[in-house]
Design a protein around this nucleic acid. Structure first.
Lengths: 210, 210
DNA sequence: TAGATTGTTAATCGATTAACAATC
DNA sequence: TAGATTGTTAATCGATTAACAATC
């Protein structure tokens, strides 16, 4: 397996390709050139060809790209062809919203269990999944070979929960707490920092008005 | 006012400075050098000095940066010193979670109203804010000089809601729907694309395991 | 003063864009 | 075949890092 290094800039664009290809399929479009895709997605045609070539020769000279084929390639590159076993920790506002968001299941992320430290929440069901006591988490992760932990606990508890997950052999963490988690090299984290997004909006707003 | 162009790369780092400075203040740390901050925040010392110098000379040779002062500068640069009037559209899972998240109020983003198209939700209160019919939205935005619209409606309705907001004179949009909204030049959008974040995690996971 | 650390210029690195031969 | 469009190399652009004089 050739291990050419894919830059983070490219990786961050992949989901957007996936989204636009989904759209094209919905509209029954069979083929598309880098030029036409460029106009829709807002990347340059040159960049699109460079990006796709990181992973293989998906196009055909004089023709462009077969939409369905390209979609399958991108899905596979993103690891969406397989299923992941996930748990969610912290059944507060955000946690409950994410747990209820069934769209993620369709992408292959199956929610197996929910944990919370609040005894009042334990037993309550979200989408038929009963909330469990967080003390049972480590054992559950090991026993059920959980791949991904979704951290929705308050900031101060996030690193502790993270440490537990890592200890139990988790592979990836989707983190909604406003901290940068410390994890060993073999564990992947991806952050959703809502406050930071809102601050960016605030900056850009101010910038544009002046 | 000097209009030197600040790159998006710098802008995207500003909220992280804000977060780490908040942390330093909590820990009663009065001053910090770019070298020490570098070790905490994970940017190079050189990058930190470059970044901060985009906005002014906040440091002092031989001393470093005064934490409280720097925090105030960054807050002001981010536009957190002023208050924004916001409304939220779409009181589904994510919408309700965001509406309940009072942390944003502390950053200066005041939630003035909530709108939904579902008559069954109209009248229900979230944090003492009654959900209104979406038909009242345009008038409300104009009358109450709303700055920011938070779009939490389903994908297919997002652009329509966006158009209404733009028509009513909104300045910024915080978009949770998985689309790229089309807006005129004088309106700012910032996206929270949860699926894309999850796909990034999926890619990185796969990449790391192989 | 001597030591520390900034602000800023120059050098390097990486990412994007342009160009075009290859080829469907 | 002629036209279209890719894959890929080279050129450009921008962002990060290194270096160091200025100065507190």
């Amino acid at each position: 397996m050739d291990k050419k290094k894919i830059s983070m800039a490219v990786v961050k664009r992949l989901p957007k390709y996936h989204r636009y290809l989904t759209e094209l399929i919905k509209n029954d479009i069979d083929r598309i050139s880098s030029k036409d895709l460029s106009e829709k997605i807002g990347f340059t045609a040159s960049q699109i060809r460079q990006d796709l070539n990181c992973f293989g020769d998906f196009g055909q000279q004089g023709y462009g790209y077969n939409v369905k084929e390209l979609y399958n390639h991108i899905s596979s590159i993103l690891g969406l062809s397989k299923q992941y076993r996930t748990i969610l920790i912290g059944a507060g506002n955000i946690g409950q919203a994410i747990a209820n968001y069934t769209k993620f299941e369709r992408l292959g992320f199956i929610l197996e269990a929910i944990f919370d430290a609040n005894p009042k929440l334990v037993g309550i069901k979200i989408r038929d999944i009963a909330i469990r006591d967080i003390d049972e988490m480590e054992e559950y992760v090991v026993k059920n070979k959980i791949d991904i932990g979704i951290i929705c606990v308050p900031r101060v508890n996030a690193q502790k929960v993270c440490d537990s997950l890592v200890k139990s052999g988790i592979k990836g963490i989707w983190n909604f707490a406003p901290v940068d988690l410390v994890v060993p090299d073999n564990v992947t984290t991806e952050n959703v920092h809502l406050s930071e997004s809102l601050m960016t909006l605030s900056y850009l707003l101010k910038d544009k008005q002046s």
